[in-house]
Write a protein that binds this DNA or RNA. Structure first.
Lengths: 173, 173
DNA sequence: TCGAATTTTCAGGAAATATTGAAACCAGAT
DNA sequence: ATCTGGTTTCAATATTTCCTGAAAATTCGA
């Protein structure tokens, strides 16, 4: 039934394209998102050349973004015995994907913010004018909140899937 | 004590600059983040001209980004009686800021993803080949998870601050 | 209705990011 | 030592995003 093959190819292409478009919204580049979508829905690991061909992109681009995905922990390199070139496969478990992304974003977005906030809160600690106190106060509140959110993120992304769902269900119920 | 005035000005400038740099990491533009930082730590509402001067940016830029912040719900326009021009003040309560950002990001990032996932899940519903089923399955799992996360986000950002903290404390404890 | 003060829009330039393509590099087989 | 199939790097280019500055529009008092 080659009709279904065709349909699958087409809808998968759709998925890859749209996921790529979403990626830009998310602040990650289109190619990276596309490769991720491609690998997540690939029944087998793919080589760099297959990725290049499927997405019609250059070798350099494919290479760079595959490396980046590996750095994020969303994709791993696998070696097939008897094969000389590298293959890549994506993590498919949604909870694992989620915690990986959460950890990475925390590292890139939350932690630098905390550094800035701490610096500024500390640097304005001793101020005595009303303006100085107000500034310190506001920054301090931000700092406390972000630190708190950071801890929460750790807790949640450290949970086992089942436990998280259980907890959430209670919350949603 | 003009020394402290000077120091405040300087550290506040630091904060604004660094927050702006962070903004780019977050996927929002530098100017917008800077204006936000400026208004969050301003004891009084500021006019467009004051923002322009403080950040050394053009009127167009100031205007566009102030509007954008208003659209996000992080800043509101206020009118001072007797004053013809508009003034702007930022929301300062951290929990309110958080829920506002959460809602906005959900709208911009989660919801479009859900649309894509639903389309692709539905479009591959009836597939019978192993590959087709696997594709459907993977997309469906993503869909379920994102839908779930979406609901969670609603719940949390609908909470009163106190309740959220209480809940979180139990979680962290 | 006119004019001054202010806001809004937007074409064009500047800056930042992503992508290409080709050369340099590397490892194993001969 | 050299060849072959493959990976990695990176300068040049293309694309996207941001910002400016000035013109057009709006508001409001006189």
């Amino acid at each position: 039934m080659s009709v279904e093959r065709e349909k699958l190819k087409q809808i998968r292409g759709e998925f890859v394209a749209q996921w790529g478009a979403l990626g830009t919204q998310w602040g990650i580049n289109r190619t990276m998102a596309q490769i991720h979508a491609l690998l997540m829905t690939s029944p087998t690991p793919l080589s760099t050349d297959e990725v290049m061909e499927e997405l019609e992109i250059s070798r350099g681009n494919a290479h760079t973004n595959l490396k980046e995905l590996v750095a994020w922990g969303l994709v791993r390199m696998v070696v097939r015995k008897g094969e000389r070139r590298d293959f890549f496969e994506a993590e498919k478990d949604v909870w694992t994907i989620f915690t990986t992304v959460a950890r990475e974003r925390k590292r890139r977005e939350i932690e630098p913010a905390l550094t800035v906030l701490s610096q500024c809160a500390d640097g304005s600690e001793e101020m005595t004018t009303p303006e100085g106190k107000a500034f310190h106060d506001q920054v301090r509140q931000l700092q406390d909140f972000v630190a708190f959110a950071s801890k929460m993120a750790d807790r949640i992304s450290g949970m086992k899937h089942g436990f998280a769902v259980q907890m959430a269900t209670k919350l949603l119920g």
